[in-house]
Amino acid sequence: MTAPFAPAPETPVSHQLRHLEHGDGAALHALVRDGGGLDLNSPYAYVLGERFWADTSVVAVGPSGPEGFILGVTPPPDPTTLFVWQVGVAPEARGRGLGLTMLRWLVDTVGPRHLEATVTPSNTASRRLFAALARELGTDLAVSRWVEPDELGDVDHEPEDLHRIGPIAGPTG
């Protein structure tokens, strides 16, 4: 779900945070392909993200181009929830709190009442990331089983647990 998470350094690295734009899909696919640690989706999936989920997603642009992103979507049955599908941080940008910075930015710009993501039990970095966001927001984090490996058609895949943060009061400012 996400690249390794570490606390922010004393001197944060500056990134331009913005919603996805036309043309970002290929760069996001390359970031996942070259960065390791994430499920690599087809290039088309990242183009879908830039076209249909731009307003609920973020890209962090650094000196060398995109160094992080979050693909988020508002599920049709619950427009007050932001579902985080994938968090990616380039290896050279890891350990600087970029994942948490992007999540806070999305919460502030999208304004969801709840934020959800699925995480495998062994993905300690993502578990810490979402727990840190809940602490910063001063709200609850509930974790429940969301999908079993057989539902994914892959008995070698771990189950996915739903992490639900909220209710979220307002901008983290």
Rank of each mutant, 00 (worst) to 15 (best):
G65R: 14
P77D: 11
T11A: 15
V110H: 03
P12R: 13
P75D: 00
A134N: 08
A60S: 10
G72D: 07
L162V: 06
Q86M: 04
T139S: 08
Q16P: 10
E67M: 14
V32C: 02
D34F: 01
A142L: 15
D34S: 04
L100R: 05
H19C: 10
D108W: 12
S42M: 05
L133S: 11
A45T: 09
R104Y: 07
L162D: 00
R94T: 07
D154K: 03
G99M: 02
F52A: 14
L152Q: 09
T120L: 00
T124I: 03
E160Y: 01
V143H: 03
V47F: 14
Y46L: 12
V58S: 12
P75L: 00
P77N: 06
P112D: 01
A30F: 05
E148A: 13
D39R: 11
M1E: 05
V61Q: 12
R135Y: 11
F83P: 09
R127P: 06
R51F: 00
Y46I: 10
H19I: 05
L31V: 02
P79G: 08
Q86V: 07
V32E: 01
P63G: 15
P149F: 02
L40M: 06
E158P: 03
G99P: 12
L71D: 04
G99L: 02
G36H: 03
G111F: 02
S14H: 15
P12E: 15
R128S: 12
R96A: 13
E50N: 06
L141E: 13
E136Q: 15
F5I: 05
E160R: 02
V58Q: 13
T118Q: 01
G95T: 04
P76K: 00
D140N: 13
H22Y: 10
G25A: 00
A60I: 03
E136S: 12
A3S: 15
G166M: 09
G88V: 11
S126Q: 03
L71I: 11
E92T: 13
G65V: 01
W105A: 04
Q86F: 01
E21C: 14
W146G: 14
